[in-house]
């Protein structure tokens, strides 16, 4: 047990990750933990394209000093290169109030944050450009995809400072995002998808129409999946649906049926449009989502 606990893979546990401060550190821990379990390197070939010169400052690698410029100007300039990306990725993260639901330490939004940070970290490491969009009933923030050094920091900073949006309205912001993305790429949606399945599928179809590949991570809390309530309970909607008192025992069957119907509808809709769809339990490790990403990326390379 001690060996297991000290293994890097323990950082795939959301509850462990939540105890780590700093989104970058979290992302690194997750990805390193995840990669330590892989035998084949996920990194593929990449190219480097010149971007600009800048004045040498102590600490820079002397190998990057352009001696021709020094000969002409008698000043030390360092060549900077724009790394060529393999894949253009966008992470769409749902930050509506319903994502703040948590039956344990990790809320759905926390889980989505960990996952999006991990994905961004992984993408940057393998030279994929990554952007991130936060939305609720509208687009709350949008960081376009880049591969520049320091972009990861920008993304992680944005993730770390996510604040809750309003009600979940997936269709409208996704359509907006779809209209703004010109370059084809990979789109990863992290959401609890508590909206009308038809609107969700329509929006995702929009991305597909524009040539994007789409991976949908349907993030749900364990209690949402199992509904383990017994005593008389007053449920209060997080998005202003009001409160309802009920006997969970008596409606569990009905609840589970409706939830499964919802999931099945989404799953079927995604399947029709060749969209990868996976339900993620916030109590489960994060590696499943990372595996899914790598599988989707390998299909594009």
């Amino acid at each position: 047990m001690a060996a297991t606990a000290s293994a890097p893979t323990r950082f795939l546990d959301p509850n462990v990750i939540a105890a780590i401060s700093g989104m970058e550190l979290r992302a690194r821990a997750i990805v390193e933990g995840f990669l330590s379990g892989l035998h084949q390197s996920p990194y593929k070939g990449f190219s480097v394209e010149f971007a600009e010169y800048r004045q040498y400052t102590p600490g820079d690698d002397p190998r990057h000093i352009d001696w021709k410029v020094y000969a002409r100007s008698d000043k030390y300039y360092v060549k900077e290169f724009e790394e060529e990306t393999n894949l253009n990725c966008h992470i769409l993260i749902d930050i509506s109030k319903s994502m703040s639901y948590a039956s344990s330490k990790v809320s759905k939004l926390d889980y989505a944050s960990f996952l999006s940070a991990s994905l961004a970290y992984l993408m940057i490491r393998q030279r994929d450009s990554v952007g991130i969009v936060g939305f609720s009933d509208k687009i709350d923030f949008h960081i376009p995809s880049r591969l520049r050094p320091g972009h990861l920091h920008t993304i992680l900073h944005a993730i770390e400072n996510i604040s809750h949006g309003e009600r979940t309205t997936i269709g409208k912001p996704l359509h907006q995002v779809a209209d703004t993305l010109n370059k084809k790429g990979l789109l990863i949606l992290l959401s609890d998808l508590l909206d009308e399945p038809k609107d969700i599928i329509d929006a995702l179809q929009h991305f597909r129409f524009r040539g994007h590949d789409v991976v949908v991570f349907h993030i749900l809390d364990k209690t949402e999946l199992t509904f383990p309530f017994y005593s008389k309970t007053r449920f209060i909607g997080l998005e202003g649906e009001g409160s309802y008192m009920t006997i969970p025992q008596s409606i569990r069957e009905d609840y589970m049926r409706r939830l499964q119907d919802h999931i099945e509808t989404l799953k079927t809709g995604c399947g029709v449009h060749k969209i990868d769809y996976a339900v993620l339990d916030t109590s489960k490790p994060l590696d499943f989502a990372l595996q899914a990403y790598l599988a989707a990326r390998s299909g594009k390379m």
Partner: peptide, 14 residues
């Protein structure tokens, strides 16, 4: 004696 719970998936209860 009623338990109060903030819940997200209200659409399946209502």
């Amino acid at each position: 004696k009623v338990v109060r719970i903030d819940f997200a998936a209200m659409r399946f209860l209502m």
